[in-house]
Simulated scan of single mutants.
Amino acid sequence: MKINGNEIRPGNVLEHKGGLWVAVKTNHVKPGKGPAYAQVELKHVTEGTKLNERFRASETVERVRLEQNDYQFLYSEGEMLVFMDLESYEQLEISRDFVGDRAAFLQDGMQVMVESYEGKPLGVSLPDHVTLEVSEADAVVKGQTAASSYKPAVMENGVRVMVPPFIAVGEKIVVDTNELTYVKRAD
């Protein structure tokens, strides 16, 4: 679907210069002299290279619609992660590197969203919050509670997160998978 250059928003996937690009940042500029334009930072979907482009309002670009399907994480096998389509029950293998550091948050049976274009997976969206058990945490230092202080803790999946001083080993906490931060104690 064609959109004008001034309609590009962060998160849009565009077909540009023979490849697929995701708009990371957009900045609308109205110089004192000349027509207005949108300064857009683009990131190549598969290669990860970045590009800064100017799009005038009169220019049109092709916006790509990605297919979004619900998948369930089954298991990891070496460097491959195996997911199952919840509608067709077909299995999909994706490299651990493709998911990145967030692969540590995958749990058996977790439901994820896989975005694909023409059958090729482009991204995996995990739930925003995951409940994990604290496996290591530093002891509380007495008198350190006057200011809001956090201490490092290691979760059951090996990820380090800063937690409040009252969190102890064995407690379950909710962690934000996007920011890798403590949210709250699990109920």
Rank of each mutant, 00 (worst) to 15 (best):
M1E: 10
K2N: 12
I3Y: 02
N4P: 00
G5R: 06
N6A: 01
N6W: 09
E7R: 02
R9H: 00
P10F: 02
G11P: 03
L14S: 03
K17D: 14
G18H: 07
L20K: 05
W21K: 04
V22H: 04
A23Y: 02
V24M: 11
T26Q: 10
N27G: 10
N27D: 15
H28Y: 15
H28K: 14
V29K: 13
P31S: 11
K33I: 15
K33N: 12
G34E: 09
G34C: 09
G34M: 08
P35D: 14
P35W: 05
Q39L: 15
Q39F: 04
Q39S: 15
V40F: 01
E41V: 13
L42P: 03
L42S: 04
L42D: 05
K43N: 07
H44K: 12
E47A: 13
L51R: 11
R54E: 13
S58Q: 06
T60M: 08
E62N: 07
R63I: 01
L66H: 01
E67I: 05
E67R: 10
D70R: 01
Y75V: 08
Y75D: 09
S76Q: 12
E77T: 01
E77P: 00
E79N: 13
E79K: 13
M80I: 05
M80S: 09
L81W: 06
V82N: 06
D85G: 06
D85P: 04
L92R: 07
L92T: 07
L92D: 02
L92Q: 07
E93F: 00
E93A: 13
D97A: 14
D97M: 10
F98W: 01
V99A: 08
G100E: 09
G100N: 09
R102I: 08
A103T: 05
A104Q: 13
F105V: 08
Q107Y: 03
Q107S: 14
Q107K: 15
M110W: 00
V112I: 11
V114C: 05
V114Q: 02
E115Y: 14
E115D: 14
S116Y: 04
Y117T: 03
E118R: 12
G119W: 06
G119V: 08
P121Q: 09
P121E: 04
P121I: 03
V124H: 04
S125L: 10
L126A: 05
P127L: 07
E133P: 00
E133C: 00
E133T: 14
V134D: 02
S135M: 12
E136H: 13
A139I: 08
V140S: 06
V141F: 10
V141Y: 10
V141A: 12
G143A: 04
G143H: 07
T145N: 12
P152T: 09
V154S: 04
M155Q: 05
E156T: 09
N157R: 03
V161M: 06
M162T: 07
I167P: 02
A168P: 01
A168K: 10
G170Y: 02
I173W: 03
V174S: 07
V175C: 05
V175S: 05
D176R: 09
N178F: 08
N178V: 14
E179F: 10
L180N: 13
Y182D: 02
V183C: 03
K184L: 00
R185C: 00
D187P: 10
D187F: 11
D187G: 08
